[in-house]
Nucleic acid binder design. Structure first.
Lengths: 220, 220
DNA sequence: CGGGCGATTGACGGTCATCAAGCTGTGTGG
DNA sequence: CCACACAGCTTGATGACCGTCAATCGCCCG
């Protein structure tokens, strides 16, 4: 099981002027708490393909499942406790704020508003997971790929504002492992969508030529 | 999307002597809090196949996905907020404690230990969801069915203690919708497991003849 | 230019969905 | 008590979809 982190702009040096604070857990904190939190953790940078963390060796039989792609502001660590064969890799250069488990636990212990915020994020993740189950269990390859493109676009739009081109920094293999398909099927499906004038494939991204049709396929 | 509730022994009349309290959220509460909580909610009983709640109509195209089976003590409601096309049905007679959203929110607001407990349960659910994604995305029909039997057995064992026979109160259709298969494939796979002397099929349950082999198939 | 990696395309086969028929158990009414 | 109906389950035949194996292409970089 695996999470992939996707690069974003590097945040400023201090939490106070962090560009993505409003998207993250930290949004629930006041200035004093923010300074306290800042002392607990460290900024860490990772190069492309580096392992951000790994609980255990990957399953040897080669079957991988990516459970999610993380974007700037995402909070990792809830799902990772008490879990084996779970890891996270960087796609492109990535900056993370890492906190020691115990001191972070102590920090949130008596802050109901923060607990509440964390809860909210966990629930959102759970909802995404359940949506993804429907995708994995009940949809065709074409629907899966379309749903992935639309869902990914929506997340990018939230961060960067609207755009017709959808950046795809992850490899086809990653997409395949996310959708429960093979790399060949992902490739074939993408070219089929291109033949049908739904998307245009460009290196590292796709262009949504017919968003309405893509959304229809995704929602199916 | 759908959750199915599975019947258990009826709990006592008051929270204080509730048989399943130690499994549920309520384990984190002291006596006074328990009494307070008791006043907020109501015990509700459902007959078999009744709808416990439904956010929206089922998808019309007939494609259903069951995201989980709930057993006594399970806490529903986190995943259900802000979610459409999501419902829960009773399998057998079921008793639930239901709390109004707002008063429950107010009740937990200033109780970090309870928030923490709820968080813990949400995370456990998230982990289960992620495991299930691997199942849906990367496993064969046989592995899915075996994993389902083993996982379900383990949950029953936690509640009722060890036993070789695994009760299956849900229909084959429910199992199929949980595993992302068709009812025919579930049926065929179960009979194949029976032919291979791994299980014995009995009405409303199966008997694990060769647990080790079943576990091996499930873990694959 | 050549090596290498990721992506694409093609041919083929297996697994599982689909369609359809039979089976089993349970309840109902004659 | 038996006939009948009905629902859930099982079994069979067929084929589509997608996985597997393999070859090729495009691109980057040395």
């Amino acid at each position: 099981m695996k999470i992939s982190l996707v690069a974003g702009e590097l945040n400023g040096q201090s939490c106070a002027d962090c560009a993505i604070r409003r998207f993250s857990v930290c949004a629930a904190l006041d200035k004093a708490e923010l300074r306290e939190l800042e002392h607990l953790g460290r900024h860490i940078h990772f190069a492309s393909c580096e392992t951000v963390f790994a609980q255990e060796e990957m399953t040897t039989d080669g079957r991988r499942q990516i459970v999610g792609f993380s974007l700037p502001g995402d909070f990792l660590g809830m799902a990772t406790s008490a879990r084996c064969s779970f890891s996270a890799d960087a796609i492109g250069t990535v900056a993370v704020c890492r906190f020691p488990k115990t001191s972070f636990a102590r920090f949130i212990e008596d802050k109901p508003h923060l607990l509440h915020r964390i809860n909210e994020l966990t629930i959102r993740e759970l909802n995404q997971a359940q949506d993804h189950m429907v995708l994995l269990g009940r949809r065709s390859a074409e629907e899966k790929v379309a749903a992935f493109l639309i869902g990914w676009r929506d997340r990018l739009v939230q961060l960067n504002g609207p755009s017709k081109t959808v950046a795809l920094p992850m490899s086809r293999q990653d997409i395949a492992d996310f959708l429960g398909l093979t790399i060949e099927t992902v490739s074939r499906t993408l070219t089929k969508l291109e033949r049908d004038r739904v998307i245009g494939i460009r290196p590292g991204s796709v262009c949504l030529l017919d968003p309405a049709r893509a959304e229809a396929m995704a929602a199916a």
